[in-house]
Design a protein around this nucleic acid. Structure first.
Lengths: 144, 144
DNA sequence: TTAATACCTACAGTCGCTGTAGCTTCAAGC
DNA sequence: GCTTGAAGCTACAGCGACTGTAGGTATTAA
């Protein structure tokens, strides 16, 4: 007995919306599934696993293009995994640089908030800091 | 003698593109500037300062809607800065939760990469990890 | 049988820009 | 004065990764 899933069951398992599945199908990330007599999508276990792969990759912050590439590479199990490794390392670097920028923002925001004494706009250190970049310590936080 | 700026000078000062300025104008974040005889935009110092405020806020990760709100609040200098403070604190929280999620991704990515021995896809621990969420330690990294 | 829920297609909207096409205007050098 | 190249103009499409909506059909449980 082969397992089959409705789009709703897939969405629940993948922690995503039904629309997301239709979107993945539309952009060719998920294969076009079979339909039942009433024209509703029926997914196989294999498709469910593929969705699991996609969703987990997304949770780790890979782009859909990266996911697409990794999935293409996994089609040949005897292929070297150098390229997968490369994609993952590059993504890790990207994640680390995002953390760096966010930490710089965090520090500046904290400093800004702490300097504010909660009186009026004209004396507000938050407004003042936002008005004047020169009041910043680090300037690393450009380009989110 | 009053200072005036072309759109190109504004863009250079704001570290953004000319199109970005036209976009800010279109969404009502920057006022409609005067034009010269040749229909080109002429900006005042005040508008330049406003752009500085916007760009610095963006660098600190505020959304354009938040910037719009803060700018509206600063229109009344005698107004309490509680609301500005609130927006900034809420944004700080958001930044901190993004950092948390990214750090979780970072750890998982590192672990995944280190487990890979660089042989072939069929043995690749990266592919294996992506296939199976259960292989993750923390599951905090959902929803970028 | 009925009512609620799930599914279908097609398309618009989100955010914050960025790019393009096809023009006009300006500024500098000759 | 003329030419040339840079800078400016409008209008609109596109990005990524969904999300929402309208208006319909199918399935399922009571």
């Amino acid at each position: 007995m082969v397992q089959h899933y409705s789009i709703g069951q897939m969405a629940a398992a993948g922690h995503c919306k039904v629309q997301t599945l239709r979107y993945y199908e539309q952009i060719g990330l998920l294969p076009v599934p079979a339909r039942n007599e009433g024209n509703q999508r029926i997914y196989t276990q294999k498709q469910m696993d593929r969705l699991g792969f996609i969703r987990h990759s997304r949770e780790l912050g890979f782009s859909l293009d990266q996911v697409r590439e990794i999935l293409a590479l996994t089609d040949d199990p005897s292929h070297s995994c150098d390229e997968v490794d490369y994609i993952a390392r590059k993504h890790l670097q990207e994640v680390e640089s995002r953390i760096k920028r966010l930490r710089s923002m965090q520090q500046e925001l904290k400093r800004m908030i702490n300097r504010c004494d909660g009186k009026q706009i004209s004396d507000c250190r938050i407004v003042e800091t936002l008005s004047n970049h020169a009041l910043c310590i680090a300037k690393q936080h450009s380009a989110q």
